[in-house]
Amino acid sequence: MRPLFSRTSVAIVRFVIAVTFSVATMVVDVRFEALSFVRQALKTSLWPIEKLASAPQEFSRSFAQWLSFRVSLVGRLESLSLDNERLKTEQLKLQTLRAENAELRRLLSVKERFSEQLLQAEINRLSNDPFIHRATINRGFLASVKKGQPVLSADGLVGQVVAVYPHASEVLLVTDSTHQLPVQVTRTRDRAIAIGVGLLNRLELRNLPDTVDMVSGDLLETSGLGGRFQSGIPVARVIDVIRSPGQPFARVMAVPIAQLSRLSLVMVDVSTEGSR
């Protein structure tokens, strides 16, 4: 048997071929996005590995749920019944408001703003690479999920679908450093771009005029610009506005409203047009 890199000249040739191939693959994938079918095939074939890897966690989660189920069943039932009654009452109010809103929008000839075709999905795993904020959910194109569709939690926007496979999809979280999102301040309607900085609890708004009317506690919501997200979805809350003397622009720090590090259930807005 001979070593992998036995003689120096052969070693260099093999090394150069491997490096050339890998750099070419990277360029074709990142620059031209021409390898999505390879990624899709690999992702599909890795499904058993992912299921097996997450089996211990799922087992421990099920066991913990079973234990808590036994212990606090009665208490939870009472609490849920109360919540259910309260939600029923609120839903009645909401139905009245929705009808009123639809009537007003019809009179103003404005299109209906919110659709409600939300598909519930479970987060299977988050990427273990700390620089890539992607989550894999258990719904794919067989469940009508399409690339570009927004993903929400009960609190606010989580991200958008960036890759779709038969039984799973990948969601790019709003905090990923490659993600940029048009937002507006609910209070003033000032618009900005929320940029992910690679931290799960941080978004940044850059290049805002120093005089911008934004204070800590302001709510940021999607502005609807760009056409990818409907307007009015809560995104983040401003925590700091940094105005440096002599600098023309202010930097605004915000914290995402959705608890991205603790998410387990999300909803995909399948009513939004996407692409396969």
Binding site: A18, V19, F21, V30, L35, V38, L42
Partner: peptide, 24 residues
Amino acid sequence: SLPIDVLYGTALGMHAFIFALLAY
């Protein structure tokens, strides 16, 4: 190395590049 790129979500070929360097 390609499935590793898929699991991490990195560009295809990135781990092949690092693997070749390490192996050498």
